[in-house]
Each structure stands twice: as structure tokens, then as C-alpha cells.
Amino acid sequence: MKKLLIATALMALTAGAALAQQTVRMGTEGAYPPYNFINDAGEVDGFERELGDELCKRAELTCEWVTTDWDSIIPNLQSGNYDTIIAGMNINEERSKVISFTQNYTPPAPSAYVALSPDADIKTGVIAAQVNTIQSGYIAASGATLLEFATPDETVAAVRNGEADAVFADKDFLVPIVNESNGELVIVSEDVTLGGGIGMGLRQSDTELRGKFDAAITSMKADGSLNALIKKWFGEDADVF
């Protein structure tokens, strides 16, 4: 009986490869609304969920969503725990050295500072940013003191409780938070545009899969459905292609 159980478990884990239509596992963070977040039903939701499902449909792939910590999102891709990163990740040179990106599916997006008062010191003060983001890299290179957090939510909380003078993040992430703060939070100074837009990250050896997603993104750009999706999630005046 015991042997039978073990054998069944092993079968479940390893066998069935023959009939396996390749499933693409989509890795995301699930903590960056409206890009990606875990909704109240406990499922991945947001702009990238809707986009990813559409891309998979167009590329005729079966996709499954997986969430992981932002901090380990690239190592987990490289060790094969999932096959793509679709997590609001901006295309930049540093990341392109270790993973390969599809073409961007959002135009280069502005980042913004948010603080409790409009005259917050963003030049030399303490600025909160999420670890390993283009924003944290930007702050580190500026004259300000960088305070890093593991999740986007904590960076905003740090401003609210006075730990940091301001938070620096994607504007699309910050705007809903500012709008719903009843005037507690304000956007400081002009926007800063960083990175080359958001793309899907894949292993550098996965050229075939990257080609499929690239083609799907191209077709969504061509028929305007991508622009419609961007407007749906980021508002009518969002940057489109």
C-alpha cells in the first residue's frame, strides 16, 4: 500500500510528460497595483494579468500564474521555477545582462516622488524605494539617502509614518494611492522618466518562447487592443503607443 502511494506520488510529480502540452508559468510579484496584485479572492489580478492572459491566448499557450518575492524574482526565473517575469519590470541595461526582454508593452513610464508635504526635501532627504528597482538605482546615484524596502506597500507606509521624507516609484502605482489619501499625500516636483518601458523577462536561452510573446505583443499593438488595456487600467490620459 505504502509503495503504491509513493509510486502514485512520484507519477504525479514526474510522469505524464508525453501528454504535457507545455505550460508556461508566469512569474509575478502580486504586490504592485494596478500592474499586478492579489485580489480579494486570492487570485492574481491587474493590468498584467489581463495582458498576460491575452498574450497567452494569442500565442496559443497554456499559462499558469505564480507569485514570488520581488527580491528573488530574477534568480527564480534563472533556476527555472517559472518561465517568464511579468511584473512591471522595466527594461534596462543592467537587467538585460542577466535575462532577456520582449519588446516593451508599456511606453517608458514616468516615476514620481510622493511625500506628506509639497516642500519635502527630495534632493538630500531620505527617499524610500523598493529594492532592486530602477527607482532605487536612480536614488542611489542622486544625492539623497536611499531607504530600501522589500515590497512597494512598505515604501509608502514609510512616508506615512515619517520614516522617509518621500517615496520614489512608478507614477501609475502612486497616483491611486495619492488620490485616495484625502490630501494626506502629494506628488512632489515633475516626473522623471526612467528605463525603456516594461517588458516580459525570460531566460536568455528561451529564444523561441520570447519570439512567441514578441509576436503576440506586436499583434496587440497593431490592433490597438494594448492601448485600450493601458487606458482601462491607468486612466484615459495614460501614455500609449
Partner: peptide, 14 residues
């Protein structure tokens, strides 16, 4: 990168 053939993934991608 660490990349084994898809049939060798534990558990399988599918």
C-alpha cells in the same frame, strides 16, 4: 541559468 529539459522538471511545468 540552470536549465534542464522540460521532461526533467520536478514537478513538471504542466
Amino acid at each position: 541559468e540552470f536549465r534542464v529539459c522540460p521532461e526533467a522538471k520536478v514537478p513538471l511545468g504542466a
